[in-house]
Write a protein that binds this DNA or RNA. Structure first.
Lengths: 99, 99
DNA sequence: GAGATCCATAGCATTGATGCTATGGGCTGG
DNA sequence: CCAGCCCATAGCATCAATGCTATGGATCTC
């Protein structure tokens, strides 16, 4: 499970860096998006290659992204959203009001 | 209005490029986010420098971003969100169902 | 008119995300 | 056993976003 690992490791180390709470968040968001895409993809019964093709990228890029290996750019997210027939939503939602 | 312009110009040209619908979208999202941040910032009565400082970046970066000069990264959006006491929301929302 | 503040841009270096190609391991079906 | 598909990674080139510094025009105040 944690043998060939590399990115999980990398990610963890990244999120552990001190004073980088924001980076941590970005990395976390990236990870979650990766998982979501993987779910959507599998739900459609597609292979990484198929999705990659549909989104105009390569299988390796998809794998990297799904694994949370990098923090994706809006351009890539947009392409993936299209391929998966979704709408990419980015917004600054109000905080839970610390009351 | 279209004198010193440069990015408006750049952006328009970008969005006009053929076969780059996705890029167009990303650029559009970037532009809208820029406006939103500007509104939030002004709403708080902050100067670009202040926001920049609060978000750990420079005034020039904020200006560039607000003007839609570049397609921001999740890391930057996250930092801005924090500074503005907001939550960055990124998601693949379902499409309006072509019904 | 001399400061001070604000925002728009420029120019340059650094860094990180993508794209691409290629390989390797795991499975499954002949 | 071999062929074929799937996914994980590596290595490398390129491009674009950021960071930083510095300048210029516009106000506004004293």
């Amino acid at each position: 499970m944690s043998d060939r690992v590399d990115w999980n490791d990398l990610r963890e180390r990244r999120m552990a860096e001190p004073g980088v709470a924001e980076a941590y968040e970005a990395t976390r968001i990236a990870f979650e998006l990766g998982q979501e895409v993987r779910h959507l993809r599998e739900h459609n019964g597609w292979s990484q290659s198929q999705l990659a093709h549909a989104a105009g990228m390569t299988q390796s890029a998809v794998a990297r992204f799904e694994a949370g290996g990098t923090v994706p750019t809006l351009a890539v997210l947009e392409r993936l959203a299209r391929a998966l027939d979704r709408k990419l939503d980015v917004r600054f939602s109000p905080r839970p009001e610390a009351a």
